[in-house]
Amino acid sequence: MKKVFLIVAFAVTSQFAVANNADQFKGLTITPVDQLESNQSEVVVNDKTFRTNGANKVVPGLDVFDESGFNAYTVTGEIIVKLSGDVDFEQFNKDNDLIIKQAYKEYYILKSQSNRDLLPLVDALKQLDGVSSVTLELADKGVIQK
């Protein structure tokens, strides 16, 4: 049992490079990946289907993973808006409790100030004249110290 705890520590908390030990896996059986059960919910973000561990509202802090299961992300609440013309965000932001976090060239980074469902907000932004694309930011959970 102690060995199993050690492996878990590897998988979950490793911050630096660590040494490996094959003895840790002796006695464990290998399950083919297609035999694993799945009981997760689906959400569509940025026109792609993602799965969650039960949640179906896309709010800041939600963890999602893609259909392959190999990529996991956190919804940060920030929205990347690419412009194709002039857009006056002032009234829109006031109405939707958004702030401009950053602006760079044709990109605006908006941030939701509340814990609301972000998908209707993204749809509303897409309707604004002068907006080229709207992307809900998904922070890659795989980015760690190396």
Binding site: V12, A17, G142, K146
Partner: peptide, 21 residues
């Protein structure tokens, strides 16, 4: 940094952070 994955690496699978070897 290039990464520390010559022998193993950590990845996510279905939301779990797994050790890959």
């Amino acid at each position: 940094s290039a990464g520390n994955s010559f022998e193993v690496y950590n990845a996510y699978y279905r939301g779990y952070r797994i050790l890959v070897l």
